[in-house]
Write a protein that binds this DNA or RNA. Structure first.
Length: 969
RNA sequence: GCGGAUGUGGCGAAAUUGGUAGACGCACUAGACUUAGGAUCUAGCGGAGCGAUCCAUGGGGGUUCGAGUCCCUCCAUCCGCACCA
């Protein structure tokens, strides 16, 4: 009896594929290329859960399909293996993070291989391997040796900049550099010592050390990038983050802000994803206006997007971090301002963010002049102004900006209305645009016109100029950690130098402990002889996003020892045609890798400006957690009995419709159990009224719960303290659990391991089921309920090829027209679905097809053989088995995807919607030759209509354009 | 607050350009076969009604012969950003 023995079949073919290098990809081919990429995983200790493979399955289906369609397909996999968890574990245990990392990778690979992916493992990358990070370091060096030329709008070799400086200084150069870059002439440059020249160049390099205010996370002992912080706490671990000024390596990503934004137009990414990047880059057009401070030589510059409201400016606000505050504060105000600035500095990022509503600030005592009105306006300090955005100075317009309005209200500052109509509103800021009044030269202009005119006027009179501002900042590149790439730079005094290229890789040194040093230096400070020719090497390591910003290029030429990748080969593979991953990388990895790729393109190292042509964000598969409800008894005795109420009881208690009788029963049980508990432990617990007790939900392991019913014995054995738990069930004796959809996580006991599913149903079922679950991009909970249907489908496929006795049997009879139609319909559907990267409906189509063929008892080779090929991207193991049983020697992966023939799909009759007296009633079939495409000119046969109308004769038959037959009775 | 997405049976979901809403699967119900199984097969399965029919795609309105689909408006849920001037 040859049942569908998926275990045997899957093992057999996985072995066959591996032994015969079936998925090895050549770097040259006559075939067109296709690059299908998954975001590579961080190998965590928990292993894969069923959510991880979702995207991998989708990309694998596409890859297998494309191969069958004659493409040379690159479909690699690797591991983003530097990272915090391994290091945290190392700190706790003293074990080198490489050991944990490599164990985890091994486990991940085993799990991945069980699913039957068509990865070319010869191209695997592991970012923590020196062979890989050698090139991460090399790219870092190229960035250091480059500057951004705004003239040519690309990165260039630093030598070209030096040449410019030698010839004409930096006065006429258009570039992206630090704000505090000094201006100098060629003479000055040429007269400087080398040291000063190098210092000056740091203002231009694309990566550079800088004293910057950063997000410091004391708990993790490292700085974090903006995208690594969510809600003011670290994304990993949720630790508080504070602002701190530290020396850091930075990446000048702001040089690319415009291109990163502009190129989004040409990418096949989802709109929400593009929007997220657009918002993150945050380009805003406006102007800078200069305000002369009275009785002081200082001129404050404020950035504004609303120069049209300049006549409504009634005060100026500076960020507490602004360096001029001391100089602008009058003697009377000094103490107050100092206290405020100090308080603002000590507020954590978290406080400052969560406390958005409260308004605080202090007057400096100074005034500045509004250049349009020559009126004096007070200068304030307030922490709602951010030092890092614009100039850190805001011209406040309380009549059209909510924050300024709140501030003016609180401190009783004047509010000048400048937009017509706003005087009728309780809150003038509800009207943001309109026609200007009270506005001198801008009167009667619209906001848009006034904006243009105000900028023109400011430029003519030399107190302002139009300006574009970005929200995005340069990226902090340093991490005070061990488990990352060492930065290939050393210092002579303050000046950083690159190591010699021939000395790459700079390998991670051995250290005794993985903690910061006693003096607070990063872990690398513990390394012995961490020097380069006697000079100290950089102590920080690179962030996680360094390695992931170029790994997709390494896959193309993964084993190259003389370059990060051969140019001819990267030219051949070009862009990633399909990139699959989650939305969580929108403002991190996906932005940084575009930046690095663009840089490599600028420097002529690769030929595409954008790395990822098409991006699909697969939705997360969530877990369904189960809960038990613990009754917390009032009393302060430490030894508290564990009492759990069933979900139904809890619901009725909370809705207060527990009947008196039910309550009595529960209380009786409780009393009995508590008496015995008290007797045993010498305690004195009692429950007077169960309705008055606190109930808290508690996660339980989902393996103990079937259809919401808890296995009480298993539950009591779960943990020692539950051994004597009192479990109060429903009237039918079942204990019901509650459930909730949450992110899959170990701590919520809701993780489903793909190995379990594979063991029970097989990899092919897992693959099909994950696709069947719903649209790829949607978030959905993992629910095993439907998996039987998919498994049954595969078993039925198997049975179609086998007699009841189990013997393989297919017929060589010629197929009927009906059978051909079923086949071609299915080929068409599968092809169209894969090509638009949607997979769930084609799985349904397979099932329909199978039902149809089973009904016809069709086991004809001419139908089944192409069908197996169509199914093979989804369920490769069973397809391969049946393919060989059909007598083929080569792997099914070497064949061609069958093409469908429209001719088989054409109907003998056409369907037309028919409406009676204007109301759509049915679709009627008419012979093809009766109603041709040009339906307007055709007159329908009354007989057909009559037949349909039960013999009634239609008064009028109107055939309207767009395929509709309108009958008037 | 700003930006985006989603809303269809008990559940997961289908529905080219507007054209019989709910394909397919799960769960459920009934039956068949059965020395019984977490097996297979057949039928039914949005709601109301004996029925013809009527009502149903978050709510309300509109365009149209015809709306899940297009337009307006409101509501709910989720996600991203957030004193960004």
């Amino acid at each position: 009896m040859a049942e569908y023995d998926f275990r045997k079949i899957e093992k057999k073919w996985q072995q066959y594929w591996a032994e015969n290098d079936i998925y090895k990809t050549e770097n040259t081919s006559q075939k067109p290329k296709f690059y299908a990429l998954d975001m590579f995983p961080y190998p965590s200790g928990a292993g894969l859960h069923v959510g991880h493979p979702l995207g991998y399955i989708a990309s694998d289906i596409v890859s297998r399909y494309k191969r069958l369609k004659g493409f040379n397909v690159l479909h690699p996999m690797g591991f983003d293996s530097f990272g915090l968890p391994a290091e945290q574990y190392a700190i706790q245990t003293g074990q080198h993070p490489a050991i944990t990392t490599e164990q985890n990778i091994k486990r991940y690979k085993e799990q991945l291989k069980n699913i039957g992916f068509s990865f070319d493992w010869d191209r695997e990358v592991q970012t923590h391997q020196a062979e890989y990070y050698k090139w991460t370091q090399w790219i870092f060096m190229q960035l250091f040796n480059s500057w951004y030329n705004k003239e040519t709008d690309r990165a260039e070799d630093i030598e070209t900049l030096i040449a410019v400086f030698q010839a004409s200084g930096n006065q006429n150069i258009s570039t992206v550099s630090d704000d505090d870059t000094p201006i100098f002439t060629a003479e000055e440059w040429n007269s400087w010592e080398e040291e000063d020249q190098l210092k000056t160049l740091l203002h231009y390099r694309l990566t550079f050390p800088s004293e910057a205010v950063v997000n410091w996370c004391p708990a993790l002992g490292t700085v974090l990038a903006n995208d690594e912080i969510k809600d003011g706490v670290s994304e990993r671990g949720g630790h508080p983050v504070e602002r701190k000024k530290m020396k850091q390596w930075m990446m000048r990503i702001t040089a690319y802000a415009d291109r990163l934004l502009k190129n989004l137009d040409h990418l096949e990414w989802s709109e929400p994803m593009k929007d997220m990047q657009t918002n993150w880059i945050g380009k805003s057009y406006g102007c800078e206006l200069q305000f002369q401070v009275e009785d002081n030589s200082k001129v404050l510059t404020a950035f504004t997007t609303r120069p049209d409201t300049i006549y409504g400016v009634t005060f100026i606000v500076m960020a507490p971090e602004h360096e001029w505050i001391n100089k602008l504060t009058t003697a009377e105000q000094e103490n107050e301002v100092k206290a405020y600035v100090e308080a603002a500095k000590n507020r954590s990022e978290r406080e400052r963010q969560t406390d958005v509503k409260s308004v605080s600030g202090v007057f400096t005592g100074s005034y500045a002049t509004n250049p349009f009105t020559d009126e004096p306006i007070p200068i304030w300090v307030a922490d709602y102004v951010l030092a890092g955005y614009g100039t850190g100075v805001v011209m406040a317009v309380p009549s059209s900006d909510d924050r300024d309005y709140r501030f003016a209200k609180k401190f009783d500052l004047p509010i000048t209305l400048v937009i017509k109509g706003s005087e009728e509103l309780d809150n003038p800021t509800d009207l943001k645009h309109g026609t200007m009044f009270n506005s001198g030269i801008l009167n009667d202009l619209t906001s848009k016109e006034a904006t243009r005119k105000a900028i023109e006027y400011a430029e003519e009179n030399g107190f302002g100029q139009s300006k574009v501002n970005f929200r995005m900042r340069d990226a902090v590149f340093s991490r005070q950690r061990y488990w990352g790439e060492p930065v290939p730079a050393y210092f002579k005094g303050d000046i950083p130098y690159l190591v010699d290229e021939k000395d790459l890789p700079i390998k991670l040194p051995a250290i005794d402990k993985y903690k910061p040093t006693e003096t607070g230096e990063p872990p690398l400070g513990r390394a012995k002889n961490w020097t380069y020719n006697g000079d100290p090497l950089e102590l920080t390591t690179m962030p996680g996003w360094a390695a992931s910003s170029w790994y997709f290029l390494r896959y193309m030429d993964a084993n190259n020892e003389s370059a990060f990748a051969n140019k001819e080969i990267t030219d051949y593979w070009g862009q990633v045609d399909l990139y699959l991953g989650g939305t969580e990388h929108a403002t991190g990895h996906l932005l940084y890798s575009r930046f690095w790729n663009m840089f490599l393109y600028d420097r002529g190292l690769i030929s595409h400006e954008e790395p990822f042509k098409k991006l699909i964000n697969q939705g997360m598969i969530q877990g369904v957690s189960s809960f038990v409800y613990r009754l917390v008894l009032s009393g302060d005795d430490k030894l508290m009995p564990e009492v759990f109420l069933s979900k139904g009881i809890v619901d009725r208690i909370q809705k207060s419709n527990l009947t008196r009788a039910e309550q009595d029963i529960i209380e009786k049980i409780l009393k009995r159990e508590l008496t015995s508990f008290n007797h045993k432990h010498g305690t004195s617990w009692s429950v007077e009224n169960v309705l008055e007790q606190k109930i808290i939900p508690m996660h339980v392991d989902i393996s103990m719960v079937k259809n919401d019913i808890l296995d009480v014995d298993e539950f009591k054995a779960w943990r020692p303290e539950l051994k004597n738990a009192v479990v109060i069930p429903e009237a039918n004796k079942n204990y019901l659990c509650g459930s909730e959809v949450e992110k899959m996580s170990k701590s919520k006991y809701n993780v489903v391991n793909p190995d379990e599913i594979i063991d029970r149903y097989g990899a092919d079922t897992l693959r099909l089921y994950e696709m069947f679950l719903g649209p790829l991009e949607q978030f959905k909970p993992w629910n095993t309920n439907g998996i039987d249907g998919v498994f049954k489908f595969l078993r039925k496929v198997w049975n179609l090829f086998h007699k009841e006795s189990g013997e393989f049997y297919v017929s060589n009879e010629a197929p009927t027209k009906e059978e051909l139609k079923i086949l071609h319909r299915t080929i068409k559907k599968a092809q169209e679905d894969i090509e638009r990267y949607s997979f769930n409906t084609s799985v349904s189509e397979f099932m329909i097809c199978l039902n149809d063929l089973t009904a016809l008892k069709c086991n004809k080779v001419a139908i089944l053989e192409p069908l197996v090929v169509v199914l093979s991207p989804y369920a490769p193991h069973i397809a391969e088995e049946l393919w060989h049983k059909l007598g083929h020697v080569n792997s099914i992966t070497k064949t061609e995807f069958p093409s469908y023939n429209e001719a088989y799909l054409v109907e003998d009759e056409h369907e037309y919607p028919v409406s009676v007296n204007g109301k759509m009633r049915a679709k009627l079939k008419f012979p093809v030759d009766m109603v041709k495409e040009d339906i307007e000119k055709q007159v329908l046969d009354n007989e057909v209509i009559q037949k349909w109308l039960d013999g009634k004769s239609p008064k009028k038959v109107i055939v309207v354009p767009k395929k509709i037959v309108n009958v008037v009775v």
